[in-house]
Computed example of a mutant assay.
Amino acid sequence: MPFEIRDLSIHLGGMPVLHGLDFTLPAGGITGIIGANGSGKTTMLRAMAGLLPPERGLVRHQGQDIAALPPRARARRIAMLPQSAAAPPGLTVRQLVARGRTPWMRPFLPMGPTDRAAVDRALQAVGLVDLAARPVDSLSGGQRQRAWIALVLAQECDTILLDEPLNFLDLPHQAELVGLLRQLGETRSVVMILHDLTIAARVCDQVLALREGRLVAIGPPGTVLSPEPLRETFGIGFDCTTLPDGKPVVLPAGL
């Protein structure tokens, strides 16, 4: 099991944000996290990465307490891409992706053949080989997002956490990235925050819904992305239909 969350509670600034979360995520596939703004999605993702200490409870990854692992050991297990990541001006795509090798490299030593090969594979996977020498800040939004995904791939972790990876992308770039995420879910465990519920239905193997820091539902998209769980999650009604392939389409009621 990649993640076991047991009675997880977190306070930020003295205020409770997560309240006794308890669930298990299966190994492999894509889990989507949904909920309104302020529901605790990013806080939960950061706790799963070991970046926020629990007020109560624990997070286990592959049977080990994340809080007990040194940062370098955590970074070899779990890669996290935060929302709206930014690269220093002038940094090239290859230089950015190479930063994903930091957990595996010895301090103050240059990259070795294994590291360079990992960077090459990551660039190939996202289709940026021809743009490797370009500055990151000269790329389009979709290209930049692919560069950050390549950094995560170069880190070579079994588990990837993504905070709104489709945010600010136009429809063609969203479709492009969705295809890449599907490929990642075939060989890794991917946990990501999503706002588009129909995309969650198409891409995710399971969906986890939060409201005000509490777990509302977790399960297959067809179960969670249905009227009652969605009303409880967002406080409004939804119209849900099912396509011939069994995938739901979700819209707020009245649209």
Rank of each mutant, 00 (worst) to 15 (best):
L123K: 03
C240Q: 07
Q124G: 11
D163Q: 04
L151G: 08
V17H: 06
M105V: 11
N167F: 07
A200F: 04
G29M: 08
F168V: 01
H195K: 06
Q95L: 08
L243F: 12
P103L: 04
I10S: 03
L184F: 01
P107Q: 09
G28L: 03
D163M: 04
T31A: 06
S189G: 10
P229L: 12
A201T: 01
A86I: 13
L96Y: 01
R60S: 12
L131K: 15
D120R: 10
P54T: 08
G235I: 08
R146S: 00
I5C: 15
A85S: 14
D170F: 00
P53W: 04
I218W: 10
D115G: 08
P227S: 04
M80W: 11
D158T: 10
G213E: 07
L51E: 02
A118Q: 01
R146Q: 00
G222Y: 11
E55C: 12
R214E: 14
E156K: 01
R121V: 03
V250A: 06
A147F: 02
A133E: 13
R60N: 13
T31V: 14
T92D: 05
P135A: 02
L131P: 05
L91I: 01
L243K: 12
L131Y: 08
R101V: 07
A27Y: 05
T198Q: 10
F3T: 03
H173A: 06
S138H: 10
L128W: 02
H195F: 02
P54W: 02
M1C: 13
M48W: 04
Q124T: 13
R6Q: 14
E186D: 15
L161E: 00
Q183H: 12
D239G: 04
I236V: 15
F3M: 04
L171S: 03
L12Y: 13
A87D: 08
T159M: 03
K41R: 11
G63V: 12
I218Y: 09
A85H: 07
G90F: 00
P227V: 07
A79G: 04
V152G: 02
Q83H: 08
L197T: 01
L58S: 14
T233G: 03
F234G: 05
Q64C: 07
R99T: 14
S84H: 10
L45G: 04
L151K: 14
T242M: 10
I193Y: 03
R214F: 09
A253I: 03
P221M: 11
G142P: 01
A73H: 13
M105G: 04
Q206M: 14
L243E: 15
P135K: 04
A75M: 09
E176H: 12
E4P: 07
P221C: 09
R231W: 14
L194R: 04
L251H: 11
G219I: 12
V178P: 00
G112D: 10
G90E: 01
F168K: 00
G142A: 00
R76G: 13
L230D: 05
A154P: 08
Q174M: 02
L230W: 05
E176S: 15
N167S: 15
R214D: 09
R74I: 09
L197D: 02
K41G: 06
